Amino acid sequence: MLRQVRGRDRLGRGAAAQSAHTRALTPRTETADRVVDSVCPFCAVGCGQKVYVEDGRVTQIEGDPASPVSRGRLCPKGSASTQLVTSDRRVTTVRYRRPHGTEWEDLDLDTAMDMIADRVVATRRRHWEWEDDQGRRTRRTLGIASLGGATLDNEENYLMKKLYTAMGAIQIENQARI
């Protein structure tokens, strides 16, 4: 109150309301080495994010005020994006549970990619259809389908469509259309 009366901040909305501790505080993003523009990974809205990186680690994620979609705002999930990438409980290895298994095991990435490729080729071979019951040429497989997520952008969806079409799949859909 005394600071209000003595100073220029008569309504107590500025300097008169600040303590020495408050004036000494600095933004938690001030020490970042760089700021990376990103998009929130949680839904199809595509809110812009500013990712603050210090010493190669993500230290803070905030809404991007320049984003025409979100104008600097993030929903509760988007605001928790920092936890998504910095949590010590985040799984950073390939996890695999064998058929009828009860425990997860870690696999190296090359082994996992080879397993996926082998299964795709085997499924395609097993379910390949050169023609239908009436003799019409089909050249397709009904053993492979794709359901893309709403967080994928147009370019990613385009590439997925091209990949699955090249493999002969015809059941290609996106969650945003459903």
Rank of each mutant, 00 (worst) to 15 (best):
A16V: 10
A117T: 14
N174T: 08
D88Q: 11
E129R: 12
D114N: 14
V94N: 10
T31N: 09
Q49F: 07
T102F: 02
V36R: 08
S146P: 00
T141Q: 01
R140P: 00
I172P: 01
A150H: 12
S19Y: 04
D108G: 07
T141Y: 02
R3E: 15
D132Q: 05
G48C: 11
L142C: 10
V35W: 00
K161I: 08
L25W: 01
Q60D: 15
G149N: 08
A15K: 10
S67M: 02
S79G: 14
V69R: 03
A17I: 03
L84S: 09
I172N: 04
E54F: 00
T151I: 12
Q175V: 11
P76Y: 02
D118I: 03
Q18R: 14
D110Q: 12
V120S: 06
T82E: 14
G12I: 10
C43S: 09
L84I: 11
R23L: 15
L163G: 01
D55T: 07
A176V: 12
L2M: 11
Y52D: 04
G135T: 09
L25G: 03
G78D: 10
G135S: 06
I170N: 05
A17N: 08
Y164V: 11
R73S: 09
K162V: 15
V51G: 06
G63C: 02
P65Y: 01
V58C: 05
S70K: 00
T138V: 09
I170Q: 07
M115P: 00
K77H: 04
E129W: 02
S79W: 03
T123E: 08
I178L: 13
D37W: 04
G63Q: 01
L142K: 14
S87Y: 03
G168P: 02
R57W: 01
L74I: 02
M1L: 12
V85E: 06
R73A: 11
R3G: 12
G48Y: 07
A112C: 05
K162T: 14
Q60R: 13
D118E: 15
R10P: 01
V69D: 03
